[in-house]
Write a protein that binds this DNA or RNA. Structure first.
Lengths: 154, 154
DNA sequence: ATGCTAATCGAAAATCTTTTTCAATTACAC
DNA sequence: GTGTAATTGAAAAAGATTTTCGATTAGCAT
């Protein structure tokens, strides 16, 4: 509950009989303490401050592992999906700022009625979903007003 | 309404003062008539049957264009997002089979209550969302039963 | 029809991102 | 401590996507 996310992940590794190595510790710390979603390359760069020898390959492998165990989730944007974030709950979604990229997680998605209805209509056994919301965060809204016109990314 | 999707896309290009070239026609035809989502590489391969000279670069460029105009949408999977599908409506979601990859679109997502609530709580101005459901389609469920144990991908 | 011009194209090269291979290292149970 | 399977990093391979650039072409205006 109030247990740090990184501790939870460490326990998870132990439960699955996986080793808690120094490279993994560095990666876990970064992901658990990150304010928002990060790409593998970003995680690599940050975790290297703690463990300079860390290879990018290990980041990918660790992300696969943590994703499989449910401690980390891929964050989906409208235009690409190269970021990951710790999933505080077993089930989490993200609200991503389209301007600064800051993300906020939320758990209550209440899709049951929709899922039930679709299962009935289509015969699919639905067992997973991706839901990501995008919009401008309060800070960026304020900044946009202060600066007048605001540009688009890309 | 009952107008073919490809015709709609063609009109869209004209409205935006873009040229309707032979390479684009080939790409539009493939996307519009596809039963499910396709990767750029798949679109390239298929469209080449109509226009053998077609380059993959043009597929990427055309997808960007059609996405910008809203005629095509990226389809989000749990593990990656490299596929595109025609968006029949301005707003569409997908139900993707986790086994064979077959997808089915649906429009009614009824997220308004959730969005309204989150806007109130967080102050974000939400203007876009990604929703994709995954599960086993009826065909694959049947096949799994027939064959006994079914393996996982990857 | 013909010409003009900006939009578009394909090929090649450059950039990323992600995966595979493999020999060396390391966590951890005994 | 010792043994062993899991894990690691480097290098290379594989894939996906973007950039560059000279050649081509659609569509409008003669």
């Amino acid at each position: 509950m109030t247990m740090p996310v990184s501790t939870e992940m460490r326990d998870g590794l132990r439960e699955h009989r996986r080793k808690l190595t120094r490279p993994r510790q560095a990666i876990l710390d970064i992901i658990a303490s990150a304010a928002h979603h990060l790409t593998p390359a970003e995680i690599h760069k940050l975790a290297r401050k703690k463990y300079p020898h860390l290879g990018l390959v290990t980041v990918y492998r660790t992300l696969d592992l943590l994703t499989e165990f449910g401690y980390v989730q891929r964050v989906h944007f409208a235009d690409g999906c190269h970021s990951y974030a710790a999933s505080a709950q077993e089930h989490a979604h993200h609200l991503v700022c389209s301007s600064c990229g800051k993300a906020q997680a939320f758990a209550d998605c209440d899709l049951e009625p929709l899922i039930a209805s679709l299962q009935r209509k289509t015969g699919y056994e639905i067992n997973l979903h991706v839901l990501e919301l995008m919009g401008k965060c309060p800070d960026c809204s304020t900044r946009a007003v202060a600066l007048g016109k605001n540009g688009k990314r890309k």
